[in-house]
Simulated scan of single mutants.
Amino acid sequence: MFTLIKQRLLKAIFYGYLLLLLYWMFLGFSRVTSEEYMYNLTPFDTVKKYILYYDHFPFTTWIINLAGNVGVFVPFGLLLPAIYPLLKKIVPFFAVFVVGITCIEFLQMVSKRGSFDVDDIILNTVGALIGFCIYRIKRA
């Protein structure tokens, strides 16, 4: 009985968090629809620009785009394997997360409400993997 309640609570937290995240990714942070499709397909290009030209960006922009893209996805690594037994193993977890975040990045680009940035996929995946590692360590 307690396990069922815990599972339902974790699912509610996860899906609430997912909705909040989708809001941030498509509407939050003063997003506006751009006139053109924006994308970056070169790994670490955006990250390199933020690091090399750190003095050209406000600190909040730097934090949101680097640390934020990692930190905001840690809960995925904590919650997904706790909710879905198949995702307790690294390969299925990694595959599901990368496919999901790639689809979201693609939707940001085609909706012109953001950009498709391979660096975001990399940073988001690092965050999810950090959460996954924490989950695995706590379960051991």
Rank of each mutant, 00 (worst) to 15 (best):
L41W: 15
F132M: 04
F44Y: 09
L78T: 01
Q108Y: 03
T102G: 08
Y54V: 13
L129E: 04
V110K: 08
A67P: 07
F73D: 00
S115E: 06
S115D: 04
V110T: 15
F97L: 12
M38E: 15
V98T: 06
I121W: 00
N65E: 10
K48A: 15
P85F: 13
I104R: 05
T102W: 00
G131T: 06
K89E: 15
T46N: 09
F132C: 10
F76V: 11
Y54T: 12
I104G: 04
G77L: 07
K49M: 10
L107P: 00
L86K: 15
N40S: 04
D120K: 00
V70N: 07
L79F: 02
Y135R: 14
F97Q: 15
C103V: 14
L41D: 02
K88A: 09
N40Q: 02
W62H: 10
R136V: 05
P85I: 11
F106A: 13
L87R: 07
F57N: 01
L52D: 14
D117I: 00
P81D: 03
K112D: 01
P85K: 14
G71C: 14
L79E: 00
P43Q: 00
I121D: 02
Y39V: 00
I104Q: 04
V98P: 08
W62G: 05
S111Y: 02
Y84E: 13
T102D: 10
Y54G: 08
V70G: 12
I64H: 11
N40Y: 00
Y135T: 04
F116E: 02
L41F: 12
G68M: 06
T61V: 12
R113G: 02
F93I: 03
Y53K: 11
V126I: 15
I130M: 03
T125P: 07
C133M: 15
V118Y: 01
F76G: 06
Y39Q: 07
P58G: 12
D45T: 01
D117A: 01
L87W: 07
C103F: 15
K88L: 03
P58C: 09
K49W: 09
F116K: 07
D45L: 13
G131M: 02
F97S: 13
P75C: 02
Y50H: 13
K112T: 00
P92G: 03
F97T: 10
T125D: 06
I134L: 13
N124P: 08
A95R: 13
P43N: 04
L87E: 05
D45S: 11
L123W: 01
F76P: 10
S111A: 12
V74L: 10
L41G: 01
I101C: 06
S111T: 13
Y54D: 05
K88R: 14
L66G: 12
T42E: 09
F94W: 05
Q108D: 06
Q108T: 06
L86N: 12
I121N: 04
P85A: 13
I90C: 03
R139E: 13
L80P: 04
